[in-house]
Design a protein around this nucleic acid. Structure first.
Lengths: 108, 108
DNA sequence: ATTTCGTGTCGTATGTTTACGACATATAGA
DNA sequence: TCTATATGTCGTAAACATACGACACGAAAT
């Protein structure tokens, strides 16, 4: 059975949905905020800052990487996770446009 | 096994995540846009406008209702789905604050 | 050389989401 | 009354998400 038909919708809406999904868990919002505020962004530090198991945090990091909102580059022994500014700006713009387009009217 | 620990995060982040989840599928973005643009917002019309089965559309409507972004009031024979302006404004504000707080820095 | 530390991957349990057909109900019209 | 229409509910299959322990690997410290 087909369990995903997302591709039949306009690309713009698909991409907005991808970003929305990326930030649809409080842990991932917390990770983004931590990355934005910290200067040293390595996995260990992130795990310490988020009250979840290390594996779970890694998983959330992977979800964020899949959405391309963050990068995870190897820096010698450690891995440095950073917010991808370009994608982040794209997300902001997509949300801005989307929210502007939807103007609630009371129809009933 | 515990499979959800969302409640350990700040309420603000939880609520932002709830709204993000609500718009994390292109079908639901399409529904919101349709509701914003149409004057007659009944289930049948929505089903006609979204290229998915009627049951699936109803399910997406239920997700949006759970997030309180829309209401679904019975209007005689028909049910009128509308965007909940108050919640919609709250979502806009939460996203705005969140996106403002996260200022990407290149740490590597 | 051995241990420790930081990291990633694998497996697994449980719950949620997406998609839809089949059925039920209730109102309006023939 | 019977039929058509609009709607909601139930069940179910497949996939995805969340959470975490156990294991593997490589670099640095002892």
């Amino acid at each position: 059975m087909i369990t995903n038909k997302s591709e039949i919708f306009p690309a713009e809406q698909q991409q907005a949905a991808v970003y929305a999904k990326a930030i649809s868990h409080p842990a991932r919002i917390a990770i983004l905020r931590f990355l934005a505020e910290s200067k040293v962004c390595i996995t260990g530090d992130i795990t310490d800052a988020i009250p979840l198991g290390r594996t779970t945090v890694l998983q959330h990091l992977q979800v964020l990487k899949d959405s391309e909102l963050i990068t995870g580059d190897i820096d010698g022994k450690r891995v440095c996770y950073c917010i991808n500014s370009d994608r982040y700006d794209e997300m902001k713009q997509l949300f801005d446009e989307l929210l502007k387009k939807i103007n609630p009217i009371n129809c009933c």
